[in-house]
Design a protein around this nucleic acid. Structure first.
Lengths: 254, 254
DNA sequence: AAGTGGTCTAGACCACTTT
DNA sequence: AAGTGGTCTAGACCACTTC
C-alpha cells in the first residue's frame, strides 16, 4: 500500500543494480546528490523534513534518519526551530576540524599566511598517485608559511587538481581573508568533507629551517594530508611542517 | 497515561537536580551505570532491547536510541540477530582504536613488548595534575620498548593511579599476552573509553636513542596521551616516543 | 499562531541467527 | 519457530524560533 513496503524489491530509481540498501540510505544518497550538485548551497537553509518526506514519498522518520547521518558526518547542521542548513567552511566552528595545531597555552586562534610560491605544474608521479590523477596532469602548487602572532610555525605545500581550480592565482589567495577551504568552497565549488593524515617526525632541511627561523636539523612534525570531497574523491594533497616548540597536534581517540 | 509522558516533570530516580534531559538520555545513563558497575561484563551479551524497555518502562524505540549512542561511542557492539554485547579490548577490531602507529608499507600488526622498568612511585606534580590526583599519591610507573619484527620503534612510559592498579607487577605484565588494555580490563576492571593525545616532534635524548637504537638527536614523534574511563575519569597517562622512519601516525579528520 | 527540528510511542514487517 | 536487532510508518506532543 505505502511506497516503502515495496522496498525489498528495490523501488528506487537507481537502476537495476545488484545491491539493495535501506530506504533511508537511498534517501541519504539522493540528498547528498542535491548537496553535491549545488541545489542547496553551503550555508543555505534546506527544505524541511516534512517537505523532503513529501518529495521522496516516504515518512518523515525515514528522512530524519537520513539527515541524522548527514549531520553526524558534518555535511549538514541542524538547528532546532530554524531548520537544517548545508554545512560551510565559513564559520568558526568548522575551522578547527582541519586545523589540529593548538597552542600549548592559551586559546586557539588562526595563523596569518604568507605565500611563498603559487604556480601551475605537471603532477609528479607521487602527487598524481595520491590525487588519483594521471602523471603529468596539471596541478596547482602552493607554498606558504603560517605564523601565530608574527612567529612562523607552519610551512605548508599544497597540490590541487588543475581541472578543479582553474582560476586560482596568487592574487586571489592573498586578497582572500579567512581559511583557504572557505575560498575553495565559495569560488571553486569544492567542499572538503573529510581528510586523512599521515604524521611523522623529521629534521628541518636548510630550506625549511630558513623559512621557519630555526636551526637546520630541528625536529619538525610532518603531516601529509589527503582531503576528500563528495563521493570520496581526493581533491587536495597537503604536506605541512609544524614547529612544535610552543604548539602541539591534537588527536582525539574515540 | 504512559510513563514517558511524565518526563517533562522529571520522572527519573535521579534526584531533584535542576537539569532536565530527554528520556533516552536518562536511559542511556542508567545503562552506562550498569556497564560501569559490571552488571554486564565486557564481551558479554546484554539484555535485549525488549527486556530493557520493560525494565525501564519505556518503549523499545527509546531504548534503541539510547543504545544507538552507546554503540556510536564504542561502549557496546550490536550484532543483528544475536543481540547487543558489551565492548571489550579483547578483539582485533578494538586494538587499532588506540594504536595509531601504522607501517608505511604492508599490513598493520602488533608490536612485541620488552619491559624496562615497573615500579610504584609518588606522583610527580605534572603527573598528578593530568591524572587528577593529589601530588604524592601512589602511581604505577611503567617503561617499555615495543618492536616490530624485532626492530625497536616505540619507547613508552606510563603512569597509572596506584589505587586502581594495586596488584600490577612486572611479572603480570610480562606473562600477559596481548594488549595492555586487555589486561587492565580483565584484571583491574578498568576499561579505557576514549583518549586525547598531544603530539610533538622532539630530538632523541641519549637514553631514548640508546633504547631505540638510533643516533642521539634523531627526530622522534612524542605523543602524550591521557585516557579516560566511564564518567570521563582520567585513569592513564602515557608518553610515547615513536620512531617514524618506517611508520607513521594515522589521524583521520572527519 | 505557525513552522521547525526533537522526543516518544505503538505496531508492523524484514534480515539474520539460533534452536 | 522463536528471538534478536534493523527498518519503516503514523501520530502525538515538546522546545525553540519567527512572524
Amino acid at each position: 500500500m505505502n511506497p516503502a513496503s515495496s522496498n525489498p524489491g528495490g523501488d528506487a530509481a537507481q537502476g537495476a543494480s545488484p545491491t539493495f540498501s535501506p530506504l533511508y540510505q537511498q534517501i541519504k544518497a539522493l540528498i547528498t546528490q542535491s548537496l553535491q550538485s549545488g541545489e542547496w548551497k553551503p550555508g543555505e537553509l534546506m527544505p524541511s523534513e516534512v517537505e523532503l518526506a513529501a518529495r521522496f514519498k516516504v515518512s518523515q522518520g525515514t528522512v530524519r534518519k537520513a539527515i541524522d547521518e548527514l549531520s553526524a558526518e558534518n555535511l549538514v547542521v541542524r538547528r532546532q526551530g530554524k531548520g537544517t542548513f548545508v554545512a560551510t567552511h565559513h564559520e568558526e566552528r568548522a575551522h578547527y576540524r582541519f586545523l589540529r595545531l593548538m597552542p600549548d597555552e592559551g586559546v586557539p586562534h588562526h595563523p596569518e599566511s604568507r605565500f611563498i610560491e603559487v604556480k601551475r605544474i605537471r603532477a609528479p608521479a607521487e602527487v598524481a598517485r595520491l590525487l588519483e590523477l594521471r602523471s603529468g596532469d596539471a596541478v596547482v602548487y602552493i607554498k606558504r608559511v603560517q605564523s601565530f602572532d608574527g612567529v612562523p610555525a607552519i610551512l605548508e605545500e599544497l597540490w590541487l587538481p588543475g581541472q578543479l581550480f582553474k582560476g586560482l592565482t596568487a592574487e586571489r589567495l592573498v586578497e582572500y581573508k579567512g581559511p583557504m577551504y572557505g575560498l575553495f568552497e565559495s569560488e571553486f565549488g569544492t567542499r572538503m568533507i573529510r581528510a586523512s593524515e599521515k604524521i611523522k617526525a623529521v629534521a628541518a632541511d636548510p630550506g625549511a629551517a630558513q623559512l621557519l627561523g630555526v636551526a637546520e636539523g630541528t625536529p619538525l612534525l610532518c603531516a601529509e594530508r589527503v582531503s576528500f570531497t563528495y563521493g570520496d574523491k581526493a581533491v587536495e594533497l597537503r604536506r605541512g611542517l609544524y614547529l612544535t616548540a610552543r604548539h602541539h597536534y591534537l588527536s582525539e581517540l574515540s
